[in-house]
Design a protein around this nucleic acid. Structure first.
Lengths: 82, 82
DNA sequence: AGGCCTTGTCGAAATATTCCGACATGGGTA
DNA sequence: TACCCATGTCGGAATATTTCGACAAGGCCT
């Protein structure tokens, strides 16, 4: 069977707002940034980032995830390990 | 070097609302569903699905994508080929 | 041409999200 | 203990999104 080099470390499978939150927190901590620093960098309010990381369910996200799940699509987050 | 079996066909890299729209459309068509059918299945309005597929930029999506990009995270959509 | 189906688009009402500012909590450390 | 820092949480105001219903355009078929 054809093969390729193994993929990136720390891949995250996204199923829900909760799993997205876990991933964002992981990558933020890996980058050694506080919520305040990251929020400032990307232009959002710190309290919102806090809620994001805690997996706050929002309608828009839920709708998109539901649609992709229905279609059998897998969502993966990872860092390229180049 | 260690290897693994090749991944799924049709992977999509998501950078923006536009690329997400393209992917959703692809998977919907692959499933041979109309926008009306898919919208009904997942409980959203057909006109919204139309806009989603056209890559309508929404703040929430833009904020999340911007945050992940800043952290160097790659987003991949694909179908498991089991 | 005429009918049918699918998708794109519009405006405004109904909902939902995000920001803001503030305060609470817990961990660490002097 | 007291102080700092990071994060969680709250309520209301400011924004943004989604739905709804309708109509238009294009493709396809008879």
């Amino acid at each position: 069977m054809k093969t390729v080099p193994t993929g990136s470390p720390h891949p995250y499978r996204i199923y829900s707002a909760a799993s997205l939150g876990v991933a964002i927190r992981h990558y933020r901590e890996e980058a050694q940034l506080t919520q305040a620093q990251l929020a400032e960098e990307v232009g959002l309010h710190r309290s919102y980032l806090s809620e994001l990381e805690q997996g706050k369910e929002t309608e828009q996200l839920a709708r998109i995830l539901r649609t992709l799940r229905f279609l059998g699509v897998r969502i993966t987050l990872d860092k390229a390990d180049w």
